[in-house]
């Protein structure tokens, strides 16, 4: 009873927040509703007994992805009134396409029947004695190791792509070289001078930096290697 109530509650909030994501006037509010939606989806996962997925959904989507979303949306100064200008004009076309899709889906669902043999082909039969997490690990890292590694490659390509398309070498800028800072000794840069009591320090040398010995910043070392060609 309580589970059913909770399900309808979470599902209703999920759908409500999903609607708000698209209709909210303020993009920041949209993202916040998106986050609310993620939470309710996670709650639904919990009700379905997939606690690992629920937590991962919160960690990955709410904790990382949506933060960056919010970050970007806050930084951008989007004029949404302007973006919605075409909405009225294209609404009828969009509505027609949407309605047709809905109709088609209705027809498909009307003929809905599960293949009777489907149960025999279940990819991931649940093993009762294994925890949710262990079970998922088994599937991901043993049965589907190929797909897992391929996803890794996809992410690698995404990373290369982001770097290739956006990284610009700023040229000979002076950057902090931590190793050099740490390796530097006080004796190399400072001179300690006795200041006798009562006389005070003379105007000239009581503690002064040694003039830097024509030390040019080694720009080449920091220019992103391999991008020297442009």
């Amino acid at each position: 009873m309580i589970a059913a109530l909770a399900f309808y509650l979470f599902a209703a909030i999920l759908i409500g927040s999903a609607v708000m994501v698209v209709t909210a006037r303020n993009p920041v509010h949209s993202v916040l509703f998106l986050i609310l939606g993620f939470f309710n989806a996670a709650a639904l996962f919990l009700l379905a007994g997939a606690e690992f997925l629920a937590m991962i959904l919160v960690i990955v989507y709410v904790g990382a992805v949506a933060v960056l979303f919010l970050f970007v949306v806050m930084m951008l100064d989007i004029n949404f009134a302007q973006m919605r200008e075409g909405f009225q004009r294209y609404a009828p076309v969009g509505a027609t396409v949407g309605a047709m899709l809905l109709l088609e889906l209705g027809i498909v669902l009307g003929g809905w029947k599960f293949a009777p043999d489907a149960a025999n082909f279940r990819f991931a039969p649940r093993i009762a004695e294994l925890e949710n997490t262990a079970h998922l690990g088994q599937l991901l890292y043993t049965d589907y190791i190929l797909l897992f590694q391929l996803s890794g490659l996809v992410l690698l390509v995404a990373m290369i792509g982001a770097i290739v398309l956006t990284l610009r070498d700023r040229g000979p800028s002076r950057r902090q070289i931590i190793a050099r800072q740490i390796a530097r000794k006080a004796s190399e840069t400072m001179v300690m001078v006795d200041a006798p009591i009562g006389t005070g320090v003379g105007a000239a040398d009581y503690l002064h930096p040694i003039p830097e010995a024509a030390e040019k910043p080694d720009t080449h070392e920091h220019a992103h290697a391999g991008h020297g060609g442009h």
Binding site: L147, L150, V154, V157, G161
Partner: peptide
């Protein structure tokens, strides 16, 4: 699907 995604993503870039 994984193969297609790996291929497509590279080509987008």
């Amino acid at each position: 699907y994984m193969g297609i995604e790996l291929m497509s993503l590279s080509i987008y870039v």
